[in-house]
Simulated assay, not measured.
Amino acid sequence: MRTYQAFALPPGRRPRYPQEAECSCRGCSFDDVRHARDVLDEVLRQLPSRARAELVRRMASLDAGYLRRTLPDPFAGQRQWRPDLWWRRRLAGRWEGS
């Protein structure tokens, strides 16, 4: 949640670009904010309805910030392994901060 929040709600107005993790180990995989959002989506599916509703409310502003600060990728269907997930259909860069 912290990784997603830090990416989705930073100060400023410039576009942000999700980055692939430089290392494929379990801990470093969270360097890719899209993976963090994947995990949050899985958590949502596993939670009981009351807890799920609370988390959905908390994530609504984060999702809006993510959409506002990222740009659509017109070729996401060809590039992404999960183009059905809206957060994976956004333009990405190579390294964080580029």
Results as ranks from 00 to 15, higher is better:
Cys28Tyr: 01
Arg50Ala: 10
Ala6Gln: 13
Val33Pro: 02
Arg69Thr: 01
Ala6Asn: 07
Ser24Trp: 03
Pro11Glu: 12
Tyr17Thr: 01
Gly93Met: 08
Trp87Gln: 03
Tyr17Cys: 08
Val43Leu: 15
Asp41Phe: 09
Arg88Val: 06
Gln78Thr: 06
Ala53Asp: 04
Thr70Lys: 01
Cys28Glu: 05
Tyr4Gly: 08
Pro48Thr: 03
Arg79Tyr: 13
Leu55Pro: 00
Leu44Val: 03
Leu67Lys: 06
Arg68Lys: 10
Ala53Val: 09
Pro83Asp: 05
Trp95Gly: 02
Arg88His: 13
Val39Cys: 10
Met59Cys: 11
Gly97Glu: 10
Ala51Phe: 03
Arg52Val: 03
Pro83Met: 04
Arg34Cys: 11
Ser24Arg: 06
Glu42Ile: 12
Arg37Phe: 15
Glu54Met: 00
Gly65Glu: 05
Trp95Tyr: 13
Cys25Gln: 06
Pro83Gly: 07
Glu20Ile: 08
Gly27His: 10
Arg2Asp: 05
Phe30Ser: 05
Met1Gly: 14
Arg14Val: 12
Trp86Glu: 12
Leu9Ser: 02
Ser24Asp: 11
Ala53Phe: 13
Pro11Leu: 07
Glu54Thr: 03
Gln80Phe: 10
Val56Tyr: 03
Pro15Phe: 15
Glu54Gly: 00
Val33Ile: 09
Glu22Gln: 15
Arg16Leu: 14
Asp41Arg: 01
Gln46Phe: 01
Arg2Ile: 13
Val56Ala: 13
Leu55Trp: 05
Arg2Cys: 03
Cys25Val: 12
Arg58His: 04
Arg82Val: 07
Asp31Lys: 14
Arg34Asp: 02
Arg37Thr: 03
Pro48Ser: 04
Pro11Trp: 00
Arg34Leu: 09
Tyr4Cys: 04
Arg50His: 00
Arg68Met: 07
Tyr17Ala: 08
Pro18Met: 09
Pro15Tyr: 13
Leu62Asn: 07
Pro10Thr: 00
Ala76Ile: 14
Glu42Arg: 11
Pro10Arg: 00
Gly65Trp: 04
Asp63Leu: 05
Phe75Trp: 12
Ala36Gln: 01
Ala64Pro: 00
Arg79Lys: 12
Asp73Gly: 03
Gln46Asp: 12
